[in-house]
Write a protein that binds this DNA or RNA. Structure first.
Length: 110
RNA sequence: UAAGUAAGACAGAUGAUCGCCUCGUCAGUUAUGACGGGGAGGAAAGUCCGAACUCCAGAGGACAUGGUGCUGGGUAACGCCCAGUGGGGGUGACCCUAAGGAAAGUGCCACAGAAAAUAAACCGCCAGGAAGAUGCUAUGCAUCUUCCUGGUAAGGGUGAAACGGCGAGGUAAGAGCUCACCGCUCCGUUGGCGACAAGGGAGGCACGGUAAACCCCACCAGGAGCAAGACCAAAUAGGAAAACGUUUCAGGGUAGAAAUAUCCUGAUGAAGGCCUGUCCGGCCAAGGUUUUCGGGUUAGGUCGCUUAAGGUUCCGGGAAACCGGGAUCUCAGAGGAAUGAUCAUCGCCCCUUCAAGGGUAACCUGAUAGGGGAACAAAACUCGGCUUAUUUCUUACUUAGUCC
RNA sequence: UGGGGCGUCGACAAGCGGUAAGUCACGAGAUUUUGGAUCUCGCAUCCGGAGGUUCGAAUCCUCCCGCCCCAG
């Protein structure tokens, strides 16, 4: 139960963020973000059917979760963030994903 | 050594650090924390079959629709499995097999071919007759050509397929016309639970193919599906169930003095709804009154939800699938969905390097070091199968080559 | 999760046991000074894939692959 409040779960929440949020991207993923008023950040991960079968999609989602887990700075920002995986994520290592995510969120605080 | 066939096993291991899901215990008003247990597969996949479970519908019958289709067994059940029979393939180990009925009926069989199914007769073959030509030993005979009548189905040619095959006899030419062998049909015998097999006798050729064409026969199927369904909660809204009662008209009967009440028949309402394919057959009744208090909806919650046709192991029965009994274990149950990340060591495979060994040589084996790689694939109610994807290995067997 | 449908040339498509229609596009030629328009000719041979039934399969059967739609 303790993690469920950090998750974005409902379809209309995703649609709201896609429509009203800002967007950044590189070849590994697309990042949508918008300020919320909760005092903590919430995350959603999307891996579409284009990426491959269930095993590949799960692998990608786990990598993204691990990347987020190890970055405490972003959790206190008070943002709703959706990460959409692109097919560049297939077959990469944790280090590359972490580096790419770091570059993407570098200037997010402002 | 190479190629192959059949069974079976595995799905890298261990440790450290940081995390995820869930259950139990304890602490806590909650949020949560601590400790302990558990946490994807052989296919979890495709969703192609079969069940369990749940709700709906059930008087009954007939038809339709769909499925299955050699025999015997196994199973909760199956289109699955085991064993066998027939047929087919392979040198072989072995594999494949939708394998009932074409003498119940209907349809189809393009092109080619004379003819594609009650047989028929194009080129032919043979006999008789007529006409003509030629020759000769000349009122005739022989040969050839054309026509007519008849007998044939051997041969030719077409086709995927041509009304038994092949050989001999027989004949004017031929023909199961006769005979042997094979095939076919019928009737006994023996073996087998049976599919069927073996062998015998008789008949005398009759019966083309196609049923994954319609169909016939035998057997099996009610429908939907865990988002099934059950309960709780709040808000909104005013509905739901039961009982009473129940359209109009015409004719007739009964009670009554009559008004009227009630019953029957027909039409109308009614070309309705329900009986979850259709029909027969059956059932129901709008509005209204009375009584009762529930019913529906929902990005809510709980249950269903994992102790089961269960796993492991031992014994017994059976040729096997499988069955019976004993012991023992509890082993994911979740929100759009939890198993990951980093590092180390060992093991496996590949490439490069090269100490050393073998060989006349090409080359082969390979300590060490470095680098790279490790398949297919994620539970969504649960089981039994099938199908498809896919890594590494073991055992047995077959064929071929070489050596002893 | 359950149910239903479709794959035929580059595009749209007909054919549903007997030689794979047609339109547009494309290529070649004719016509024209050139282009367009017009005319003639050509263009599937692996009918999504693999097996099977049949003498013969795009068509019938089985299993896969891809795409689309519907219910909640």
């Amino acid at each position: 139960m303790k993690n469920s409040k950090y998750k974005i779960r409902k379809g209309w929440e995703y649609r709201f963020i896609y429509k009203n949020g800002r967007r950044k991207s590189n070849r590994f993923f697309v990042l949508y973000y918008i300020k919320n008023n909760l005092g903590y950040s919430r995350f959603g991960i999307s891996a579409s059917k284009k990426l491959g079968n269930a095993v590949k999609r799960n692998r990608v989602k786990r990598l993204i979760r691990e990347v987020i887990r190890l970055r405490d700075d972003i959790k206190g920002m008070g943002m709703d963030i959706v990460l959409v995986a692109r097919d560049g994520m297939l077959g990469i290592k944790f280090k590359d994903a972490d580096e790419a995510f770091g570059n993407l969120i570098k200037h997010l605080g402002a």
